[in-house]
């Protein structure tokens, strides 16, 4: 599948934002501390940036409001509805923290639930597509949710160390667990992708399997078309192994080591170490998201010999 930059940035940045918002909603941080206030603003900014960037690939973005109408059947519509609905408790929580320095459990927990539900819907958009077999597994949902949680806990750890909170080492530990879970799910996802037998083949796509082996002899056209540009991306499959290892090293191993070091260091050094883990993690997740799209093979490519 074509790895559209807008969609990769959207899922990565909004995942971090919703993860952070979900952790803040649990009230683990002192609502009056300045790093918590910054974190609230940061979470809202990340979510808004992500949502805006997701409208960049639309052919007619001025009609995007129509996407709130089909929540009964479409996960994309559900995502839109949940994203907008979740803004209410998140903005209320941010207001209470930034302006009044207070934490309201009801709004906080509603925000956490909304954040989880929105990331779940994002993942279900991809999981529900049978035409892209690599995505059509509950592991996709597990990956999206655990990466959001890991990113959120990582950012919350930075805020906790900056606030000098007692919660910081515990958040760091939770972050390490979430990172391990996320990359374990991703490892399983990659193994499944590599080992799965394709459910659709050129034989089933043409119905000619009863006669014999089917091979594309002549394409319908000489040049690329919308389908081959959108779904015929295969450069990534060549270097997938290397990129997977780089993603794991940057997004998983490095942040785990830095968080572990932070718990031992404490004080100002801990803030720096936890903060350093953030860009490492973000780069790893961007690489993972790029692979998620770029290595996935669409069933229509059975007609195009790719």
């Amino acid at each position: 599948m074509h790895p559209a930059l807008s969609v990769i940035v959207f899922t990565t940045v909004s995942g971090l934002g919703y993860g952070l918002a979900a952790v803040l909603g649990l009230g683990a941080l002192d609502a009056a501390a300045w790093p918590t206030r910054v974190a609230h603003v940061l979470a809202l900014a990340a979510i808004s940036t992500g949502l805006l960037s997701s409208t960049l690939h639309l052919g007619n973005p001025q009609r995007a409001w129509r996407a709130f109408s089909q929540w009964r059947s479409s996960w994309l519509s559900r995502e839109g509805v949940l994203a907008v609905a979740t803004f209410l408790p998140l903005t209320a929580s941010a207001w209470m923290s930034v302006i009044e320095g207070r934490y309201l459990p009801l709004w906080g927990l509603l925000g956490t639930a909304g954040s989880v539900a929105t990331v779940f819907s994002t993942a279900m958009i991809y999981t529900s597509l049978r035409s892209v077999q690599a995505w059509h597994t509950p592991l996709t949902v597990a990956g999206y949710l655990s990466f959001a949680a890991a990113g959120g806990l990582l950012l919350a750890t930075v805020a906790a160390y900056a606030a000098g909170s007692d919660m910081a080492p515990r958040l760091a530990l939770a972050g390490i667990v979430a990172l391990a879970a996320a990359w374990a799910f991703k490892g399983a996802w990659w193994r499944r992708q590599r080992r799965m037998a394709p459910i659709s083949t050129p034989e089933s796509a043409t119905g000619l399997g009863a006669i014999g082996r089917v091979r594309l002899h002549e394409r319908p056209h000489a040049n690329e078309n919308y389908l081959t540009r959108e779904m015929g991306f295969k450069v990534a499959r060549k270097h997938a192994d290397k990129l997977e290892r780089l993603a794991l090293a940057s997004g998983g191993v490095a942040p785990v080591l830095l968080l572990a070091a932070a718990t031992f260091a404490g004080g100002g050094l801990a803030i720096a170490l936890a903060l350093l883990a953030v860009p490492f993690h973000a780069i790893g997740v961007l690489a993972e998201r790029w692979l998620f799209f770029a290595t996935a093979r669409h069933a229509v490519m059975n007609y195009y010999g790719r």
Binding site: G59, P61, L129, Y303
Partner: peptide, 22 residues
């Protein structure tokens, strides 16, 4: 008149029956 051009339907179709008018 209602289509926003998100392209998800083309992804969902295993047959490549839908193409975006750029």
């Amino acid at each position: 008149d209602k289509c926003i051009g998100c392209g998800l339907c083309a992804w969902a179709c295993p047959y490549g029956a839908r193409e975006m008018d750029v």
